[in-house]
């Protein structure tokens, strides 16, 4: 098992080194943007996994944190003119507080009921945010907040000012997102080894037994939600800063919440590296499919929608046959006779 673990770390280090050197190896905005998006989605996947994977509370409402993070950054940067990156902690905090607001009541619900409630929270938040400006205009005191600048921009979205040197700005955010991904991974790794992580694991396995052992289940669940909300809020903030345009319909969309559920479950829920694997596969497959077109005779079919179809299919297969996800599958292959035979053949080489 020891060599197995050091092998994982070796692979991780090689991949990370490659990713860090990518802008030098392949200059150009395509790879850089794909890389940055992948870092952001890996961070989302890892953050969701803290509550959903370790704690076993499947949340369909994490899109709210992504949107709130993005719009907090936009609201502050547009009003005060301070550099957007200074707003990152505030974006995280606002998302965290929102997590406390809806997590505290809803996490008292058990398993599937919590999931249903989070769908409701996500949808309600989106409807509210799209109409937020119009709503505030109707309230006497709060009218002043949106007098000169909108908060969410309603149906038209918000645009952030363009930086002077767009190239170095983009490169800086590439490494910024990369660094943040490492932070999210470190948090996830630390939580898994800590008492906190053990408590979450106990809650996941048997909430009643955990309660009997003296674990305050609701407190730990709310804490896990807050940590994951904080991280997701920062991802939202980084997204807004890099793409400079945000639309409430897109930022708060159900699709984002779905992506955060799918990535860790497909990669390997409740593990450290599974969500990373799931997110990378998710983004790369999506990117390939979004440009590909299937030609059937004279008919040209756009494959964008094929992405989620594929993931729906994968989800069904994973629940039915391999609850450990892709990582579980890899481990299963790793333990099989085939791999033993292959490694026996290569033993003389090492």
């Amino acid at each position: 098992m020891r060599t197995d673990r050091s092998l994982t770390w070796l692979v991780a280090i090689v991949v990370l080194a490659f990713v860090a050197a990518l802008p030098m190896l392949y200059p150009g905005s395509y790879w850089q943007t794909l890389g940055l998006i992948t870092f952001l989605f890996v961070s989302l996947s890892v953050s969701w996994n803290i509550l959903g994977g370790y704690g076993g509370q499947i949340s369909f409402g994490h899109g709210t944190f992504l949107g709130l993070g993005a719009f907090t950054t936009a609201a502050i940067a547009l009003r005060t003119g301070i550099p957007p990156w200074l707003t990152i902690p505030v974006a995280g905090l606002i998302a965290m507080l929102y997590g406390l607001l809806w997590g505290y009541p809803t996490l008292r619900l058990r398993g599937p009921y919590f999931s249903i409630a989070t769908i409701g929270v996500g949808e309600a938040t989106r409807v509210l945010m799209i109409n937020l400006d119009d709503l505030l205009r109707g309230i006497p005191v709060l009218k002043e907040v949106v007098r000169f600048r909108p908060l969410t921009g309603g149906a038209s979205g918000l645009t952030l000012p363009m930086p002077a040197d767009i190239r170095s700005y983009a490169l800086a955010y590439y490494y910024g997102a990369f660094a943040f991904m490492l932070v999210a991974l470190a948090v996830s790794w630390w939580i898994r080894r800590s008492r906190f992580g053990l408590a979450l694991l106990a809650i996941n396995m048997d909430p009643d037994a955990a309660e009997t052992l003296g674990i305050s289940t609701s407190r730990y669940k709310v804490m896990a939600l807050m940590v994951s909300a904080f991280l997701v809020g920062i991802v939202g903030s980084l997204y807004a800063q890099y793409f400079l345009f945000i639309d409430p319909r897109e930022m708060f969309s159900f699709q984002n919440s779905i992506a955060m559920v799918l990535m860790p479950i497909i990669g390997g829920v409740g593990t450290l590296w599974g969500p990373v694997l799931g997110a990378v596969v998710f983004k790369v497959v999506e990117d390939r499919l979004s440009t590909a077109r299937l030609m059937v005779g004279s008919l040209s079919i756009n494959l964008v929608q094929f992405n989620l179809l594929l993931y729906g299919l994968l989800l069904v297969l994973i629940i039915l046959f391999e609850p450990g996800g892709v990582l579980g599958l890899i481990r299963r292959i790793g333990r099989s006779k085939l791999s033993l035979r292959i490694s026996a053949r290569f033993r003389g080489w090492v």
Partner: peptide
């Protein structure tokens, strides 16, 4: 119960995206 919820969620995604196609 959460397994069946996720399974049927996958079925929903499949139905929805077949419809998009």
């Amino acid at each position: 119960m959460i397994a069946s919820l996720l399974l049927l969620f996958g079925v929903w995604l499949i139905m929805q995206n077949i419809a998009y196609l």
